[in-house]
Design a protein around this nucleic acid. Structure first.
Lengths: 232, 232
DNA sequence: ATAATCAAAATTGTATACAAAATACAATCG
DNA sequence: CGATTGTATTTTGTATACAATTTTGATTAT
């Protein structure tokens, strides 16, 4: 074998990608508020680039629904009504259930082991005395990723990830209430057992319950932060 | 010249929108083949615009998955493998079933009447002596739109439309075989009856069967046109 | 005060310019 | 020949220029 000079491919990314990723994250984490204007020159100077890549990034964000474009009047961060959150959750529920069903059919023994391990990890993190939310959240994500991966459906994976990201703002809220950890552990366990048994109906059922609980938490969260500036 | 994109200067739309819509349609209808390169200057001169709006359009198409971007190496029309078609159909099936279920819950009496009318229209078009495929296809679309609208979920509507459009290339193929018209009429009828009776399970069942048949037709179509140039 | 008007400033839409990278292809070496 | 290098050409990435439109804010009339 020759020499394997491996240079970090992350060293360069097209600027529009960088701007896109950064703005995207800023919107999803709530760093940029709904209704806020995105002005090209300002963003460009902030990023230290020209308007061109900023415009490209904005067009991409619009395509993803994260910003709204009013011709000749610029872009604003899309406002997310309780209505639209309900819509997203409704779709995501169906997709998550589909994930569980497909996972029953297609998960490999190795992935099944990994799923079991992820459940245990989650349990350990949730029962730890310090209860680091970031750790717990990471375990939760890992667990879902294993199922998502097990579906073997790239498109589904992409769509579920996208929908989840739209809910990013509210993601950790439902983990703050440590009373529900026991319930979550049980739900995860039920999902694992169903998938391990290749029982599609049980998996769909268990997954549905799991999502419903998350939905309740998120909707409660939305209700609390209601009264914020709305627009369109 | 191979493609001759011309744009109507009468009505005003931002150029990137015009380019986006035109290219999008060209890709979905197969006018532009998978793997084909999209070169900025060429497209720009064809459209009679500068590279800027073309670049913006390409970024939007990439976001939608219709083109693949290779940094510094330009964009190509995304190739659709049989694999990815299967993935899309799998997701769309779940979403269509969800549509039927939600429609059961939420459809208005007026929309229900419209659905019945649409079924009759389809039947009439399918049993007509001339059997104009475009008319039949239009009825089919109208019928599905009514259900989609009845879900009251804008996000779902957008996602299902997007997924359907990805299948645009193969849409009409399954309507060419007039042997199946009787079956289609029956399936539509079953869906209508289930929704009218607000029977979610029956609606899901009927809708699932309907989609499965469509899927078979499309996958058969794909298998026929296999051996086409692949890439990534 | 409030509303209407209109020029100045700011912002977006589009085109172009130039640099960096990739590609094509001829010349060279083995 | 085939592989390799070097160079011209093409194409993309980014910045900038200018026109068209919208926004701002002062000014005036009601």
């Amino acid at each position: 074998m020759k020499h394997d000079f491996k240079l970090d491919p992350n060293i360069y990314l097209p600027l529009h990608e960088v701007v896109f990723n950064t703005l995207r994250r800023a919107i999803l984490t709530g760093e940029l508020d709904p209704g806020e204007r995105l002005m090209e020159i300002h963003l460009a100077t902030q990023f230290g680039v020209s308007r061109t890549p900023v415009r490209e990034a904005i067009r991409m964000l619009e395509q993803e629904g994260l910003v709204t474009l009013r011709p000749s009047r610029g872009a604003v961060v899309s406002s997310i009504s309780a209505e639209s959150v309900k819509d997203v959750l409704e779709v995501r529920r169906a997709m998550d259930v589909l994930c569980a069903q497909l996972a029953c059919k297609r998960i490999t023994p190795e992935a099944l082991d990994a799923l079991k391990a992820a459940c245990d990890e989650f349990k350990k993190a949730a029962e730890a005395p310090d209860k680091a939310i970031t750790t717990i959240a990471a375990c939760d994500v890992a667990l879902h990723d294993i199922i998502l991966e097990a579906t073997g459906n790239r498109r589904l994976k992409q769509m579920v990830n996208n929908l989840s990201e739209q809910m990013y703002r509210y993601r950790f809220e439902y983990l703050k209430d440590s009373d529900i950890y026991g319930q979550l552990i049980a739900e995860h366990s039920a999902i694992y057992e169903a998938i391990a048994a290749r029982d599609e109906d049980a998996a769909a059922e268990a997954c549905g319950i799991h999502i419903d609980n998350q939905e309740d938490a998120i909707m409660k969260q939305i209700a609390l932060s209601a009264g914020s500036p709305a627009d369109q």
